[in-house]
Design a protein around this nucleic acid. Sequence first.
RNA 1: GCCCAGGUGGCGGAAUUGGUAGACGCGCUGGUCUCAAACACCAGUGGGGUAACACUCGUGCCGGUUCGAUCCCGGCCCUGGGUACCA
Length: 927
Amino acid sequence: MEYKFNEIEKKWQEYWRKNQTYKININTSKPKFYVLDMFPYPSGAGLHVGHPLGYIASDIYSRYKRLNGFNVLHPMGYDAYGLPAEQYAIQTGQHPAITTENNIKRYREQLDKIGFSYDWDREVRTCEPNYYHWTQWAFIQMFNHYFNNKTQKAEPIDKLIEHFSREGNLKINAACSPTQKFTASQWNSFTEKQQQEILLNYRIAFLAETQVNWCPQLGTVLANDEVKEGVSVRGGYPVVQKKMKQWSLRVSAYAQRLLDGLDTIDWSESLKEVQRNWIGRSEGASVNFGVKGSGRTIEIFTTRPDTLYGATFMVLAPEHEWVLELTAPEYKEKVSQYIHWVKSRTERERIAEVNKITGQFIGAYGINPLTGNEIPIWIADYVLSGYGTGAIMAVPAHDSRDFAFARHFNLPIIQVVVKEGDTPTDPATWHESYDSKEGVMIHSGIIDRMPVKKAITAIIKHIEDKKLGYGKVNFRLRDAIFSRQRYWGEPFPVYYKEGIPYVLNENELPLELPEVDKYLPTEDGQPPLGRAKGWQTNEGFPYELSTMPGFAGSSAYYLRYMDPKNSQQLVSKEANSYWQDVDLYIGGTEHATGHLIYSRFWNKFLFDLGIVCKDEPFKKLINQGMIQGRSNFVYRIKDTNTFVSYNLRKNYEVTEIHVDVNIVHNDVLDLEKFKNWMPDYANAEFILEDEKYLCGHAVEKMSKSMFNVVNPDVIIEQYGADTLRLYEMFLGPIEDSKPWDTSGIEGVLRFLRKLWRLYIDTNGQLTLINEPATAAERKVIHRTIKKIADDIEKFSFNTSVSAFMICVNELTDLKCNKREVLEPLAVLMAPFAPHIAEELWEKLEKTGSITDAQFPKLNEEFLKETTVSYPVSFNGKTRFKLEVEAETPVSDIEKMVLENENTTKWLEGKQPKKIIVVPGRIINVVL
RNA sequence: GCCCAGGUGGCGGAAUUGGUAGACGCGCUGGUCUCAAACACCAGUGGGGUAACACUCGUGCCGGUUCGAUCCCGGCCCUGGGUACCA
């Protein structure tokens, strides 16, 4: 009987559901293992063949761990809040909850067909009240905590309040927004409103006026990681900078810990590097520059305080808070014009025109604290308000941007560093700034003639002694803007009393998302929640109108899986101390600077509160590569409806047109299907080669518009889920991007058929016998056991599939039908192709699911070779082979080589200088 | 510009990490079975060369280390990804 994958797969999927095969619980008698996939946003398009790649890999690993005696937590859920459902709601009026529900249903059907071992009882959906209860709860905790820089952890805000009332904030070292200094008595005399406003500067979840990325088309602000190349990641709409009052999370407080934590986790070096760059730690100094004729001092940050003597002007970000105040009257007009121009530019324009030098002198002068020299103050958009203090000292001689700016506006340039062996030259003759990473200081007062490194240390000490500034570490990582002016997201558990935000009590959670008549902003520009009726507390205080961003719900979902139904806690102590952290996390690299920063931050915060027992949530992380599309093309002769085959296209003037890859097989077009594909092509004519129409092809992104989307359902229908699973793995290393080409899949199906035939004869009978296996058979199966275990541990699933093919080919050649060999083979296959493995397991008359079998034990004895076939090479070139008994001493082997008749020929009469024998590997004769 | 990956047959890729380059699969060619097709099975398949061997070239390019280099070192070229005035 042949291998009927459709029947088999349906049967076992049914069985798993009925028997709750994948339901797991805390079991302290077994070691735990937590395997997590990045949960998907359920889009309307459903899954294409690229999406399950990571899920298949993690499923194989989960099943493997289970076979090895681990209690494996392997859950799945949905990142259910998001823009597409809301945009659809705006267009059609359909509630995003309905869209989302439908999409989830479709996802679930598709996922079920692939045969995953998820414990669906643990499913989470970020849009459900019993889930976002805990998102809101975490927000309340962040509101009620501040970050103590000294202890480097979150502490209760009450502790801070107590400290303020005792000592003010003069000595406190906490992460905070710019805040006035006050004493205890001042604090105690502040009104409630004043106190609350000050506390907002310290809370980890805080409300503040900040420069934000505003996306007019989406009608919302976006976080830094949601903006790429000046446009929104979702939708690609332009983004402008705007000042708005927004909720933010003080992620920057955790910058150092987020950086240090990277050294403790097993992630790819490249992903860690992306995070390090995003966090962007730099060491330097903060230096105060006085302003001539003003009481103000401008604080600047520099990584090169040694070049202070070379500072010839200062530049402020146009948004710097003192710009207008410091501007001389005669420059007011020009300065405000410039600021206006800067504001009018989109991020995209700004980035595109990075090389365009613009700026404006404000008519004021800063005072170099070391030299007392007066230097002009400019504003320019090359200085960013969000980094450092939004103000710099410009050292044009040694900074390329300052150099270009100085040249453009004709400002002075002073060289203060010279490389060893160089002589200083006139900067007027330079074409670019002078590299100053190494060298010796010149024209530099108290640090003159010191090498750069020493000068940096010396100058920092000097400015600290003179109270001109201090050594400082700066981070690029920004606080995360946490408000979205959208409907489809978590409501904030926040209400306002006299304009001051207060959080709800924990027992009032969840605050459920209200209904609205339209999903658009209100007439007066309020977010959609402004339309909700009665959106206020019982006392009549209005609720917050913004909702939380996408990353809110995904920041702690891995914790919720541990204890998904708990209505009292995010996660119980018991569940958290058993499951602890994610042992293996698989997902795309696109989350490197968003989700993977936020969830690490969120987890560290909960760790500080003692809610979770691990400081880092994801022990090992693997980024699966992208599956690209493989597009096919047809070539239409211009102004006709005639299509010419690939190799003949050069003879005509043709237009290249994408054609649906699903009607192309091995690059040969199915002409009938093509005619039916689109009405325009119904009367198409063809010029063929070898009686076939050959299509062109290219590797592109998998997308509808390229007609290269392959749906897993279709593949499963034609080839089966087990074949799909194996083929996805067979394509190549899990971390590489590679194109999907359905052509190759038949080889995998052929392999499964061949595997099937090892067990089952043409009548559907099991053909196995219980006789002991031969040495050759044992060698084959034990070699495979070793290879598969090694490969799975290394996540080298593509080579495992090859190993299975080799194994089955060899066992077929050996006509092996021994239970001793084929029973373990079925278990080896189970993680990769669970359906066929279950069916064979049943045919083998085993009870229960193969999921609960034991991974076969390797016996190294069977792998021992009795002879070794040495390649014999002369000067590194292999010439012939020599069979030698294993364990033959090297000296004997040398003798055998010299005595071998083939050797004489290759010696060419010369005396060998040396014979190198690498036992078990190779022999090389050096002439 | 900077950072990180990576360049191996017609294609996806393998190579125990310094030891027979091209495993496995696709595709292609020829054959068996069939009225025919599909399926299946058998043989071949890096280039040059040969009737077939022999031989020779060959892992992006140039050079180095080594008995021996796809693997290590130096320089260059190209592709993909990330990032972007970060002081």
